[in-house]
Each structure stands twice: as C-alpha cells, then as structure tokens.
C-alpha cells in the first residue's frame, strides 16, 4: 500500500493537480458571476469549446499565444452577449437558451475548425504555453515546484479566486450584482440597472469561460480536438452548486475534482488498482447531486436565479 501511495504522490502529482484545476477555476468563477446575477449560463460547455478552437487557431496562425488568449476571451464575451440578449432583453427561458447557445457554439467550433484546417491526418499543433518558474519562490522545497513553477495562466487563476471573492463581497459593483441576483426589484428601486448588470455579468462570465477554453487547447494540451472540453463545462455547473455560490468554496471544489482526476490518471497509469477509471470520472457528478439533495433545504441559490426581469411587469 505504501508503495502505491509513494508511486502516486510523486513530486509532480500536486503540480499536475493544480494544472488540471486551472480551467475549472476560470470557468466555475465565470458561471458563478452569471448565477449570482440571476442567470444560469448553460452555454458554458459550448462557449469553452468555441473559445478553445478560436484561441488555438489565432495562436496557430499568428504564432502568438497571448493573442490566442485574447481571441478566446473575445469569443467568450460575444457568446455572453448572445446569452444576455436572449435571457435578459428577451426574457427567454434560461435553460433552453443555454442549451441552445451550447449547441450553436459547439456546432460553430466544429464547423470552423473543419473549414480552417480541413481533415488533416495529424491534428495541427502549436508550441503550448511553457511553465514560468517564479524566482526565489519556486525554490521553496515542496511548495515551490507545486505552486510557483507553473503556466502564467495558472498564477492568474490562483489570484483570480481572492479577487473574485473581494469583488463580489466588497465592491459596489459586486453588491449591485448580488442584489440583482437576489432581489431585482430592490436593485431597480435603488437605481441599479438590472439589465446592464446582468449584461456585464454575462460578458465577464463568457470571458472567463473563454480563458478556460484557451487554457485547455493552448496550455494543458497543444492542439484542439473535438473532445477537448468533454463535459468539463457541466462539471463547472456542478461545482458552483457544490460550492454554494461562494468563490472560495467553488474553487476548493475545483481542486477536489482535480485531485480525483489526477489520482485517477495516476492509478490508471500505475495499473495497481483495479477500479474502472470511469468510476472516478462520474464521482464529481454523483457527489454534486448528493450534495444538492443534502443542502437544498437551506440552499443559498440566488433568489432571482432563472427569473427574467421586466420592469413593466411586477
């Protein structure tokens, strides 16, 4: 048993875990902003896929990874705007709009990829982001290689968690966002524009999902494949609920998921443990559903989640 543990928890284990958690942190926080403003963004899976594709293509042709990230963010913002137009301006069902946005964005991603690259026998790839060791910090024994010898976007994700928590909790915009998600009528009478706030939240949400997609196709992997997201967006929907709409808890959930995922990969590679790896893959979904059942009686979901808001109709 000790031998297995030693084999699994090698030096690279926790570093890999942080890397796997990074896109989940970005996308989960993106989803969280949308939901705290009262909009469930089920477009997440498709937005991540489209951003991963467009970001990769931009990087492939320009040779600039950061331009790729910017393009991915722009794609995410546009998709967020579409989602906002449907659910905020037109007040359409958030569920169905989200599924529609996911279908549309996934279709576009596949269509455009085929249009740009055709059907090559080996998928085109790029030189992905390399790790940037932070001077001094990366030489701290133990912690250094795990936290401070990572991709630039990993640092961004780690910084984003406290920033998101601070913005939500302590800034006027965060207060406006939360009020819009809890009680849009009150926000309206306090002079906060419900529509504008939800638009901003959805654009921010799309941008963060875009970064998540870019990380997958340009840092975690060095190519775009059709299965690059494979349900990670849905995982993030789960993580927001699991984290009770709190940035810290949701990020912790992302780390927990990454831990399970990394463990699963290592155990599979070591070939010692004879549990189908799919059991690990389904775990976050099962845990979330069980968690939702346990907490739903005193759930803290934003009160106005899923409710369209129209001034004229009270």
């Amino acid at each position: 048993m000790d031998e297995i543990l030693a084999q699994v928890f090698q030096i690279g284990f926790f570093a890999a875990m942080i890397r796997i958690a990074t896109p989940l942190i970005f996308a989960t926080l993106g989803e969280l902003f949308a939901e705290r403003a009262g909009v469930l963004n089920l477009g997440i899976e498709g937005i991540m896929l489209l951003s991963a594709m467009l970001g990769f293509s931009a990087a492939y042709f320009s040779g600039s990874l950061w331009l790729g990230v910017l393009v991915a963010i722009a794609a995410g913002v546009l998709a967020g705007l579409l989602m906002a137009g449907l659910t905020v301006t037109l007040g359409l069902s958030q569920h169905v709009s989200g599924i529609g946005v996911t279908m549309l964005c996934s279709g576009l991603a596949f269509f455009l990829y085929r249009l740009i690259f055709g059907q090559p026998s080996t998928p085109p790839n790029i030189r992905a982001f390399e790790t940037v060791a932070l001077p001094w910090l990366s030489s701290i024994p133990g912690l250094g290689p795990v936290l401070f010898d990572q991709h630039a976007l990993v640092y961004a994700a780690l910084i984003l968690v406290p920033v998101a928590a601070f913005v939500l909790r302590r800034t006027p915009w965060g207060l406006a966002l939360r009020t819009v998600g809890e009680n849009p009528h009150a926000a309206d009478s306090a002079g906060v524009s419900v529509a504008a706030t939800r638009y901003q939240a959805l654009m921010l949400s799309g941008a963060l999902m875009g970064v998540a997609g870019a990380f997958l196709s340009m840092a975690q992997f060095n190519a775009f494949t059709f299965g690059v997201i494979s349900g990670r967006g849905w995982v993030c929907i789960a993580l927001v609920v699991f984290g009770q709409w709190n940035p810290w808890r949701s990020a912790a959930g992302a780390l927990l998921f990454a831990l399970i995922d990394t463990l699963q990969l290592r155990l599979q590679a070591s070939g010692v443990v004879n549990v189908p790896y799919q059991v690990f893959l389904m775990m976050p979904f099962v845990l979330t559903i069980v968690g939702m059942a346990l907490v739903s009686r005193n759930a803290r979901a934003p009160a106005a989640l899923l409710m369209p808001y129209r001034k004229e109709e009270r």
Binding site: V101, S106, G107, L108, F110
Partner: peptide, 10 residues
Amino acid sequence: PVFLAEVIQG
C-alpha cells in the same frame, strides 16, 4: 463541412 447540421440545430 458536415457540421453545418449542428449549427442549424442550435
């Protein structure tokens, strides 16, 4: 590309 069908669906 065949994926036009998926875009049409969405």
